[in-house]
Design a protein around this nucleic acid. Structure first.
Lengths: 109, 109
DNA sequence: TCGATATTTCGACATACTTCGAATTATACT
DNA sequence: AGTATAATTCGAAGTATGTCGAAATATCGA
């Protein structure tokens, strides 16, 4: 039931670019230790983490953190939703699947 | 018998950066339609492609192509060896495995 | 309503990246 | 030796990225 479909090589290049910064990659991995909503491998609270938590101990300014979150969101790797004061983030598993599929699949071109 | 071992998040970020340019990603995918040497899924000739072939129809200057090949090589994604006038390239399957493993594995941190 | 907490937006700056053309190196062929 | 082909190195130019601080927005609690 993968609803995600990325079309071009450019799309995937953008996704890789989002993971090409060590701060963003760390953020993404911290999220990937949680589960996707609806995947039933943890409580709701375990699936999501707020922006502040994700950037803890990274040594970057809040504005920089926000910029990185925005970038991960832009390419579709993560989803974000407000919950009170916090912005809760979680991984879009479809995009991750598309990415690993893209890597292992042989090029047509 | 995976002899490749990447240590840090920074290493993986570098690998993703190498794939974050659509020209380099296209080059890499053209190579991944071949097989690794020793994997026995094709003749020797099928496993490798020279720099000029990999950059065909990409619309970039030879010097730019060379720069991209160098970058893919630097992070370990591909291997290069001279064969006469040509430089033959092929994929390092260990690094690709490490990459997909890294993506699916949960973060410890 | 006022202050605290969480996050974003904006503008600025330094650094890194992509690309090119010109010149250079390596190999093959005649 | 001389020429052609394949690829690299170098320097330059424009663009993109990562980062910050200051100011703004959103929500919660007293």
């Amino acid at each position: 039931m993968s609803k995600y479909r990325s079309n071009t090589v450019e799309d995937f290049a953008e996704i890789f670019k989002a993971l090409s910064n060590s701060h963003r990659l760390t953020i993404y991995r911290r999220l990937s230790s949680c589960c996707a909503p609806g995947s039933g491998c943890g409580s709701e609270a375990d699936m999501r983490r707020c922006v502040g938590d994700l950037g803890r101990d990274l040594g970057i300014a809040p504005s920089t953190l926000s910029h990185h979150i925005k970038e991960l969101r832009r390419v579709g790797l993560i989803r974000v939703e407000r919950r009170g004061q916090r912005m809760e983030c979680w991984i879009d598993p479809d995009v991750l699947d598309a990415l690993t599929g893209f890597l292992s699949r042989s090029a047509v071109d």
